[in-house]
C-alpha cells in the first residue's frame, strides 16, 4: 500500500490532550496527527485510554485541556494556559462532528429503523440531503459492505457482523474525512469478525483515513500505516506496525504483545492436531 507522505493533508491533529473522569486522569497530554489516507491503529490494555481518546475527538467525552483540530477546524481548544477556552455553538460543533464517522463496539444501530433508514437518517436530518438522493446513496453504501439484500431489515433481524457493517455504512453516509473505529469487532462472535474486518480492509484500500482501536493485531500488522501504543493514558510507543509489533522496545508493550503471542502459542498444539 502506498504510504501517505508528510505532504498529505492533515486531517486530525491532537495536541497535549488531557481527560479526567472525576479525579482519575484518563489521558495525559496526548498528541497525535493523522494525515489523509493514513490508517492508524491504537493499541493498549483495557483501561489505557484508547476508547476515551477516540471519544474525545468528536467530543462524546469532554476533555479537560488540550487542542483538537479536524480538517483545519478546531473543535476543542483550551489554549496553552488552559484559560482561553474555545467556545463553539452546538451547531458549529455538530458541523465539525459530521466530518468524523464513528463505529461503535456495540454497533448502536437505531433499533426502530431498518438498515436503510439507519444509513439515510443523518444525511436527511442533519445534512438536509433530498430523501431520494439519500436513499440511493444509502443503498450504494450498504451494497459496498455486502448488505444489498438486507436493506429492509431491522437491526434485530441481522447478525452481529451484519449489524456492524450497517454501522460502517451509516458512518460513511455523512462523507466523513476520518473514520473512528471503537473496537468494532470486540462484541462479535469469532466467526463473524472476518466479514467486518474485510469491510474495513476494503475501506482502508479505498484511501479512507482511519483511526482504529482494536485488539486484532493481525489487522494492525497488515493494514496499519502506523501503530500507537497507549499505556495508562500516555502514548508509550509509536511507529510502523512491523517495528512496534515485532521489535517492541517499551517493556509494557513487550508484555502486551507477548500475551498475544502466548495465546497464539497455546493454540498451536490444537491446530497442529487437525
Amino acid at each position: 500500500m502506498s504510504r501517505p507522505t508528510d505532504a498529505a493533508r492533515l486531517v486530525l491533529a491532537i495536541e497535549d490532550l488531557s481527560l479526567c473522569f472525576g479525579h482519575r486522569q484518563v489521558l495525559r497530554s496526548v498528541s497525535l496527527e493523522v494525515r489523509q489516507g493514513e490508517v492508524v491503529v491504537l493499541l493498549g490494555a483495557s483501561g489505557s485510554g484508547k476508547t476515551s481518546l477516540l471519544r474525545c475527538i468528536n467530543l462524546l467525552n469532554n476533555p479537560r485541556s488540550g487542542r483538537i483540530v479536524i480538517d483545519g477546524a478546531p473543535i476543542f481548544d483550551t489554549g496553552l494556559d488552559g484559560r482561553d477556552r474555545l467556545r463553539l455553538s452546538e451547531r458549529a460543533i455538530n458541523a465539525i462532528r459530521a466530518k468524523t464517522g464513528m463505529v461503535f463496539q456495540q454497533f448502536n444501530l437505531f433499533p426502530h429503523m431498518t438498515a436503510l433508514q439507519n444509513v439515510m437518517e443523518a444525511p436527511v436530518i442533519v445534512g438536509r440531503v433530498p430523501r431520494a438522493e439519500a436513499e440511493a446513496a444509502a443503498r450504494r453504501l450498504l451494497g459496498q459492505v455486502g448488505l444489498a439484500d438486507h436493506v429492509g431489515k431491522r437491526p434485530a433481524q441481522l447478525s452481529g457482523g451484519q449489524q456492524q457493517r450497517v454501522g460502517i455504512a451509516r458512518a460513511l453516509a455523512m462523507n466523513p474525512m476520518v473514520m473512528l473505529f471503537d473496537e468494532p469487532t470486540s462484541a462479535l462472535d469469532p466467526e463473524l469478525v472476518g466479514e467486518v474486518l474485510k469491510a474495513m480492509v476494503a475501506l482502508a484500500r479505498s484511501g479512507m483515513t482511519m483511526l482504529v482501536v482494536t485488539h486484532e493485531l493481525g489487522f494492525a500488522f497488515e493494514i496499519a500505516d502506523r501503530v500507537i501504543f497507549l499505556d495508562d493514558g500516555e502514548i508509550a510507543a509509536e511507529g510502523p506496525p512491523a517495528e512496534i509489533l515485532l521489535h517492541p522496545q517499551n517493556l509494557r508493550l513487550q508484555n502486551f504483545v507477548a500475551r498475544f503471542h502466548e495465546s497464539a502459542d497455546m493454540l498451536k498444539p490444537f491446530l497442529a492436531g487437525r
Partner: peptide
C-alpha cells in the same frame, strides 16, 4: 449508546 451514535452523526439535542 443511542445518544452517542446520534451525537456522533451530528444531530442536535432536539433531533
Amino acid at each position: 449508546g443511542q445518544t452517542d451514535a446520534a451525537t456522533a452523526l451530528g444531530m442536535t439535542y432536539r433531533q
